[in-house]
Amino acid sequence: MADPIVIIDYDAGNLRSVQRACAEVGAQAVISNDPTQVKAASRIIFPGVGAAGSAMVSLRRNGLADALRGAVGDGKPVLGICLGLQISLRHSEENDTETLGLIPGETRRFRLDRPELKIPHMGWNEVRPVQPHPLLDGIEAGDEFYFVHAYYPAPEDQACVYARTTYEDDFAAAVGRGNYFGVQFHPEKSGRVGLALLDRFTRWDGQC
């Protein structure tokens, strides 16, 4: 990789695990909260755990929200992970927050009827691609990824949903539009199949 990947740092959790996973697949990644560096990046990973409300405050304060919107507009490959996917939608039920609006739709809290199902949805679960995408290429039936989340993305347009996972009901586990792609699971904690997805991202041209 000629240009490093920029992992956007907006006080939304520990980003070094994402950086280490990038290193494992041979990609140099820098963690940055500098909008100039985000604008100059060749590709961007937008990770995050934590709450939507404080994440948006931090993104707006740092000028990172605009830098990220700009990068998506410029056609750079962007990978959202977990909260990074959720706040790419227009609104989140978490803290009733207006989010980035890169994808029409909202983030909703799990409302579960079966008492034995716990919140958060934590652990390994199957991710089933529902339409082809370069980043999902190679995922086989039965492949599981690691999830930790109490909220899930609900895009308005089903054409944006690339993979589904079942908890009590199905939810969107991978959401994309153009050069933006987001996953609800943690590829950096999902063993071989997660590393393979990150590896594909480091070589993705942003087309689908």
Partner: peptide
Amino acid sequence: VAKEVFIP
């Protein structure tokens, strides 16, 4: 360990 092991 974190450099080599990519599970929680």
